[in-house]
Structures are given as C-alpha cells and as structure tokens.
C-alpha cells in the first residue's frame, strides 16, 4: 500500500495559485469544507465537491450555505481516497486523455487493498459518484473472478448458511464451474 493514499488529504491546495493564464478574470476557487464521521475536516475545491452529487444537491438546496458539510457514515480514510480520485478525474475532464485516465484508474485501483476498495464503495454510493462507483464495482468483480467460493465468502465476509448437503448438491449440479479455480 502506498503511503500517499494513506495520508488524509487535509486542507490541500490552499497555497496553490491557479497557473492558468486567464487567472486575472477568474474567480478565486471556492473551497468547500467536509467533515467525516470521525470528525476530520477536509477542505476541497468546489469543483471537486461538485463531483459528489450528494454534496452538490446540499448546496442546491441551500446555495448560500457556508457551513461545514457533515458526512455521517463516511470515515476519513476512504473519503480521502475518494477525494484523491475525484481530483484526478477533474483534470481528465478539463484535459481529456482516455489512455492516461485508464492508466491512472488502473494504478489507483491496483495499489488498494481489498479492504480499501470495499470501504470506498459505500462512500462512493453515499456521495453518489457514479463513475467511481462503476470503477470500484468493476475492480471488485475483477478481484473475485475465477476465485474459489471460500475466497468470495471471505472477501465479502459472508457466513455460509447452506447445509453441507445443500452445498454438496450445488457443487454437484454445476461441477464444471468448480474446476480450474485460481489460487487464493
């Protein structure tokens, strides 16, 4: 696991000046403050926060709000990773480069542990970031592909509620599906 993803993205970019040539006329970038359920404060650029449909509608409902946006059920670590991802996606939106985007997404996903990945899913779901949710779901699907039943159970933390007889019957019925499984 890389260290960069572990450090929460606290108040980044506050010192960053817009490098674009037309900055004189551009408004200073507005910051939005988010608070995770474990009381960490995240200050993100408005453009990043607007990627979160949930946050966006919060401001649509109360446009003048300058309050801190509380995000219950969202803890700091997955939130910081989600913010990291969205920041990059905005760069790709401004400057489309499918190949680079694909490369970035792949790297972003491969360096995450199983737990990091699945922890980000409820966050992406709660914040309604459809692109990220798609990417995460696909990544999880890829990780369980060709794995054993036991691996899948462990991955999702599932308790097996089949009786031994029921499970044996299922395995018999689809015996072909239980061969050539990857090593866990």
């Amino acid at each position: 696991m890389s260290s960069s993803t572990d450090s929460p993205t606290l108040t980044t970019e506050t010192t960053q000046l817009s490098p674009q040539p037309d900055t004189e006329t551009a408004k200073p970038t507005k910051k939005i403050t988010l608070k995770s359920s474990d009381n960490q404060i995240f200050e993100v650029e408005e453009s990043v926060a607007m990627e979160f449909a949930t946050v966006k509608s919060f401001f649509e409902d109360s446009p003048s709000s300058t309050d801190i946006v509380p995000l219950p059920n969202v803890t700091a670590k997955p939130l910081s990773q989600v913010i990291e991802f969205c920041k990059e996606q905005i760069k790709f939106k401004a400057n489309p480069d499918e190949a680079q985007k694909k490369k970035y997404n792949a790297e972003f996903l491969t360096e995450k542990s199983d737990k990091d990945l699945v922890d980000m899913i409820p966050v992406a779901n709660y914040l309604e970031i459809k692109d990220l949710l798609d990417v995460l779901n696909q990544a999880v699907a890829d990780r369980i592909e060709n794995k054993s039943v036991e691996y899948v159970r462990n991955f999702f933390g599932i308790d097996n509620d089949f009786t031994a007889e029921e499970e044996a019957a299922l395995r018999r019925e689809h015996a072909w599906a239980y061969e050539g499984v990857d090593e866990d």
Partner: peptide, 23 residues
C-alpha cells in the same frame, strides 16, 4: 451494490460459485 458488482463479473463460472456462497 452487491448486485451491481456481480453484474460486472464477466465469468459465468465465478457467478455460479458466488451463488453457492450463501443464500
């Protein structure tokens, strides 16, 4: 979400195995 993940599994053998993970 789980359904969305399983729909992205492009391998029927994996799906069959997932179906025996739990009810």
């Amino acid at each position: 979400i789980i359904l969305a993940i399983l729909e992205k599994v492009q391998d029927t053998e994996t799906l069959v195995r997932c179906s025996s993970a739990s009810k």
